[in-house]
Write a protein that binds this DNA or RNA. Structure first.
Lengths: 206, 206
DNA sequence: AATGTACTTGACCGACGGTCGAAAAGTGTG
DNA sequence: CACACTTTTCGACCGTCGGTCAAGTACATT
């Protein structure tokens, strides 16, 4: 088994570079330099540049995803509280890593790619957990709806897409309006008490 | 004014190449060769390779988008009929162009990019139109909901994401289930008659 | 014929992702 | 320590790519 510390050093280097640069503008040699090793060494640990990015994304959301997964099993907490915690965890992790503060020319392609990788992962990983939470809400009689898995996916897609503002760039007001609409639709469509989901509006705060 | 026929020849070449290849695996020289001209000529008409792709996407959905826009102004047709026509137009255009039948190695990045470009455009362009349709449904008393624009965006996002199966790959059954859930949520959440939106399930047929 | 303009071209450039063989560092054995 | 052997490091090198550009062609206009 190879020295796993080296993996993290490389990932750290890329993450650091990614803070104010785009993937395509970052060369493999640069990552190697930042990591303090030769380019060849990178290819000893990773098969390709893309694999490094994949691993970084994997590592970045490992923790978030894990806490989300734990949440689903904590049946003693009320469903809506857990949902709130789950969304909070999502947005904490999303903004921190993905938002490039200064994107000079950014050829659009790499940003798009980065965000999409994150989106896909988030939705597919969290869907079973949110489904579980919703199911318990249905059993408790707090939610009335016949398609828990579908509901989970719908909510996750909309939330993920809207929280990631670079996919369909909209003003903060418009994002808030969409979220408000989603809340209204959910509350009315699942017979839960109005206002129960209001915590969602807080998560839009930048 | 440059010969606009040349633009289309180049776009045709790329589209043809794109049918069984990925963007990143297609070199600019190849596009030029297929278009029957030198590489330099491409750069006389387009500033970059990405610009060619953008133009192709633009051209591919120009017609669809135009018919969708016309739909919104046809107030004599019932809102739900117009919505159905709009979705039908969406899915016809999406599958035809985006689905690469044989993607041998396809580095994920280019597919992702292509699909996302389409998604972004579809949602942002169609949102105003669908909003208009919904607003008229509200005025008619057929739909009861306070956030027409938000509803339009939510529906478009979910539909677009789910129709494009490569973003979050799921089985046809799962897609159908999600769509059924969306219909149920919409019908219950907007007080429209159950079954009114059933045409949505037809659009999932491959 | 001469001048100007719109268009074409492929050799060329710098940079990139990835390879490779050799060297260095680490490890176990006697 | 010497030795064999494996693991790790490395940067010169390779092929390819997107993009540039000076030279050229085609063709009006004068």
């Amino acid at each position: 088994m190879p020295d796993s510390k080296k993996y993290d050093i490389i990932l750290d280097a890329l993450q650091q570079l990614l803070e104010d640069r785009t993937i395509q503008s970052i060369s493999v040699s640069e990552i190697a330099q930042k990591a303090g090793m030769g380019k060849g060494s990178l290819y000893y640990y990773f098969p390709s540049k893309e694999a490094i990015l994949d691993a970084l994304i994997e590592r970045s959301y490992e923790k978030t995803l894990q806490t989300a997964k734990n949440l689903a099993s904590q049946t003693d907490i009320a469903p809506f509280t857990r949902m709130a915690m789950l969304f909070q965890a999502c947005q904490n992790s999303s903004t921190a890593f993905l938002m490039q503060p200064e994107t000079p020319i950014s050829s659009a392609q790499d940003i798009a790619f980065l965000h999409q990788k994150y989106l896909t992962r988030l939705v597919s990983e969290l869907k079973p957990d949110l489904t579980e939470i919703i199911k318990q809400g249905i059993e408790n009689g707090e939610i009335h709806f016949d398609h828990p898995a579908a509901l989970a996916e719908i909510v996750l897609i909309v939330i993920a897409v809207k929280l990631d503002n670079s996919l369909f760039p909209t003003s903060p007001e418009e994002t808030a309006e969409t979220l408000k609409g989603l809340i209204a639709l959910l509350e009315k469509g699942t017979d839960i008490a109005p206002g129960t989901l209001n915590y969602l509006t807080f998560t839009t705060g930048k």
